[in-house]
Simulated scan of single mutants.
Amino acid sequence: MRRRKSRSICLTRTENRCLLPVRTFSRGDSRWCYDIRKAYLEGSEHLKDDCLTIRCDVTVMKEIHGEEAMVPPSDLHQHLGDLLKNQDAAYLTFQVGAQRFSAHRCVLAARSSVFKAELLGAMEESSSGHIEICDMEADAFKSLLHFIYTDSVPPVLDVVMAGHLLVAADRYNIGRLKQICEDKMGNNIDANMVATSLALAEQHGCHGLKEACFQFLASPSNLEAMMASEGYEHLKSSCPSVFKELIARVLPAEWNAAKDIVMTMWK
């Protein structure tokens, strides 16, 4: 804590009456004094028999140099990450493809409402210590567990893995992870992945990602490249509604008749 030095001076006849106002002197002052004109004193009622009583109240505030306590940042994520890594008291196992993962029932339940319902509710998984997951890649599930325990994604998160994690995050209702993956995909759109990203955005309610894809496809060259990608046919078959919306947005407004004709193809 730092405090500045100060001086105050008050000229009085009695202890309750001040002739001059209180003045505070700080360290920045060039001199510590108070000028009083002779004429001012001679005309003052406080000057009696060439005598003047001066009262000075001086307060000195010293500088106090104390070491401030530095509170370290939270390391909870490190401890939970070590818990996952060391598998201490992990009595729950997941079989994902050929790989097996151990986890803690209470941690998963605390981080995901879906896991909570499955592991602590009346569902079959709640009474079993072994759960098999058939529709997710092992690497995606491993990254999902890593986020659940540490609240962070892998240091290197490519667009493909972001897509897998987005599906997993939506499945287990982990909103922050879903938003991270949506942002990652939306900021890295290219012609090869835009059809897949658009399909995922439609299926999992990612409105920001969907809009980013539409903006990318507003360019005729990007649209043409997307139509030559592997995900194009999947987009048409799996998301006919979003494909209709895409056609309505990319065709010029004056082509209304053409839009109507094209739309009938998917009725």
Rank of each mutant, 00 (worst) to 15 (best):
E124G: 06
E124R: 05
E125K: 01
S127R: 03
S128D: 13
G129K: 03
G129R: 03
I131E: 10
E132Q: 07
E132C: 08
I133T: 00
I133D: 01
C134L: 05
C134G: 02
C134R: 01
D135M: 01
D135W: 00
M136G: 14
E137H: 07
A138D: 11
A138G: 12
A140F: 11
A140C: 14
A140L: 09
A140K: 02
A140M: 06
F141Y: 06
K142T: 15
K142F: 13
K142E: 15
K142S: 14
L144W: 02
L144A: 07
L145P: 07
H146R: 04
H146V: 04
I148Y: 10
T150V: 15
T150W: 07
T150F: 10
T150E: 09
D151A: 11
S152Q: 14
S152L: 10
S152P: 08
S152I: 09
P154V: 11
P154Y: 07
P154G: 14
P155H: 01
V156T: 15
D158E: 14
V159C: 11
V159L: 07
M161F: 13
G163Q: 09
G163L: 07
G163M: 08
H164P: 11
H164T: 11
H164D: 14
L165Y: 06
V167M: 15
V167R: 10
A168E: 00
A169Q: 06
D170W: 01
R171G: 14
R171P: 13
Y172C: 04
Y172E: 09
Y172M: 04
Y172D: 01
Y172P: 04
Y172F: 13
I174N: 05
I174G: 06
G175E: 15
R176E: 12
R176Q: 13
L177T: 07
L177Q: 08
Q179E: 13
Q179W: 15
I180N: 06
I180A: 08
I180S: 05
C181T: 03
C181F: 02
C181R: 00
C181I: 02
C181V: 00
E182V: 10
E182W: 10
E182T: 13
D183A: 00
D183S: 00
D183W: 00
K184M: 03
N187Q: 06
N187M: 04
N187D: 11
N188I: 04
D190N: 09
D190M: 05
N192T: 11
N192W: 04
M193W: 06
M193N: 13
M193E: 09
A195S: 10
A195C: 14
T196F: 02
T196Q: 04
L198D: 08
A199D: 08
A199M: 10
L200W: 06
L200F: 05
L200H: 05
L200Y: 02
A201E: 03
E202L: 05
E202Q: 08
E202G: 04
E202R: 01
Q203M: 04
Q203E: 00
Q203W: 01
H204F: 08
H204Y: 10
H204W: 03
G205D: 12
G205L: 12
G205P: 10
C206T: 10
C206H: 04
H207P: 03
H207A: 12
G208V: 07
G208Q: 08
G208L: 08
L209H: 02
K210V: 01
K210N: 00
